[in-house]
């Protein structure tokens, strides 16, 4: 137990941040999956990859709205990237919000171009029109298009993962006790993106059996990874969990949400999809819904469990 952490104040990051973490994970994950399908998938995967691009840009844009709304001075959102006295770019590599802002901006550029390219229907060939250059960048420039997708994927991974780093680079109990939050958010974020694509793909009849199995397999790996990370995460915060400083209601309240994440959000979908032979569209749909609920609950418990630890300074101080 590190009593120094109990002298700090929670930053009042609440619902807007929880929502942003959730949609940010989906946005990054959707782009990553779409890019991977375009890079190593087959032509029949194009419908789902297109869906990924169509999700990624609106999701990250929505996330940005949440982020701006969370600021106490929303109209000064641009101060994140430009120094307000000189209008020069402002970048601090050692400030997670600063580098996160630049990662999001970069990702939005990639996601925006891919979104415009994906607006062209699967059967269309944009020989002219405003969308043609975007379509060409994503699909028609050979190696450069692949490079575009790889670079976009790096920014997508950054978007999905930096939020966890942001929480750990604080002095708050739980957040600062672990270094695994970024990795956990990354796996969980991409897992929720797989779930979103499976749900939409099934609903729109855009997903074939083969791709459904491949996506479910990917999600299984992510869920197994998430499970291992959760065990490691609990071990890393064990010192504070076992310190006796936290009130009993904290354990029962957030403990229940965390149990929901593990049981309903990770174990149950894994059981539903891990056996390829028994994978059906209905079991995949149910698993996807559970993954989304679990992903949201994970962010809720990750953010709020520390936010709600306050005024414990005297307890720790003795």
């Amino acid at each position: 137990m590190t009593p120094s952490e109990f002298f700090t104040v929670a930053p009042h990051w609440t619902w807007w941040i929880v929502f942003y973490f959730f949609v940010g994970g989906i946005a990054g994950g959707a782009f990553l999956i779409a890019a991977l399908l375009d890079l190593v998938g087959g032509p029949e995967d194009r419908q789902v990859s297109r869906m990924g691009y169509l999700i990624a840009f609106p999701a990250i844009s929505l996330g940005l709205i949440f982020l701006v709304l969370d600021l106490n001075q929303p109209l000064r959102f641009w101060h994140m990237m430009l120094e307000n006295h000189t209008f020069m770019p402002s970048f601090k590599w050692y400030s997670p919000i600063s580098f996160g802002s630049w990662i999001i901006a970069g990702f939005q550029a990639f996601a925006g171009i891919a979104f415009l390219a994906a607006l062209v229907g699967p059967g269309d060939k944009p020989r002219s029109g405003p969308l043609r250059p975007f379509h060409k960048i994503v699909y028609g420039m050979g190696f450069l298009s692949k490079l575009f997708l790889i670079l976009g994927s790096i920014f997508a991974l950054g978007t999905a993962g930096y939020t966890g780093i942001l929480l750990t680079v604080t002095n708050r109990p739980v957040w600062a006790n672990t270094n695994l939050m970024g990795w956990l958010f990354l796996f969980s974020g991409v897992s929720t993106a797989v779930a979103t694509l499976i749900l939409l793909g099934i609903r729109r009849k855009a997903i074939g059996e083969d791709l459904l199995h491949r996506l479910a397999r990917f999600d299984d790996w992510l869920l197994i990874g998430e499970l291992l990370l959760i065990v490691a995460f609990l071990a890393s915060i064990w010192e504070i969990l076992s310190s006796g400083v936290l009130p009993a209601t904290w354990y029962t309240g957030w403990g229940l949400v965390f149990a929901f994440v593990v049981i309903a959000g990770v174990l149950a979908p894994l059981i539903l999809t891990i056996r390829s032979r028994s994978l059906t569209r209905s079991s995949a749909t149910l698993a996807a819904v559970l993954v989304l609920l679990g992903g949201f609950a994970l962010r809720l418990v990750a953010v709020m469990s520390s936010e709600t630890i306050h005024q414990l300074e005297r307890v720790a101080g003795g």
Binding site: Y162, I165, R214, F218
Partner: peptide, 22 residues
């Protein structure tokens, strides 16, 4: 934290390549 997240991203990329490859 950044190093572990980067490792996670690399693992994720590999898992994605292996799983989603046609």
């Amino acid at each position: 934290s950044s190093a572990l997240t980067t490792v996670g991203a690399a693992v994720m990329g590999l898992l994605g390549l292996v799983s989603l490859r046609k």
